[in-house]
Design a protein around this nucleic acid. Structure first.
Lengths: 71, 71
DNA sequence: ACGTGATGTGGAGTATACTCCGTAGCAAAA
DNA sequence: TTTTGCTACGGAGTATACTCCACATCACGT
């Protein structure tokens, strides 16, 4: 499940860098706000469609969101 | 669905470079053979757990499998 | 023509991603 | 203390990822 943790950390980091709340991000990506919360807590293994949608709103690629040791 | 297509192409390419059949890869990653076939045809949006498992057997990262224009 | 390896594809079932509702906690501001 | 913004988290329902079966096709070698 290491990949979930990596994704969770990247998602939260990019979201905060974009200055967005979980709710704002969820609204823009047209997904549920509680699900964003769950993803940042590694509760679920998101689908690649979901990863791409979130990345779009954050201005990064799906690959970026799954990359370890970013930058 | 662009991300599915990218993933599908990368999966097939890395699999062939590794000299594995869909069946061999499926067996090593302990998943179903027909599912590997489906993924290479962009039928489903794989979960990030699944992407990571496949990447492990192919010697690449999950991010690699989702990266566009791989060199 | 026949057998074999590799892949595509359909159908039915199970596991889980994802949605939508509500409630609760906590920090900062009034 | 009360309000407001943000997040955690539970439960129940729906959508879909994923498994397992079977059968079909196509290319190749014998």
């Amino acid at each position: 499940m290491a990949i979930r943790q990596t994704f969770a950390e990247n998602l939260r980091r990019y979201r905060l860098e974009a200055g967005l709340s979980q709710e704002e991000l969820a609204h823009r990506a047209e997904i549920d706000r509680t699900y964003v919360s769950a993803l940042e807590r590694s509760v679920y293994a998101a689908s690649i469609d979901m990863v791409a949608r979130l990345g779009e709103e954050l201005g990064v690629t799906a690959a970026d969101l799954l990359r370890e040791e970013p930058e």
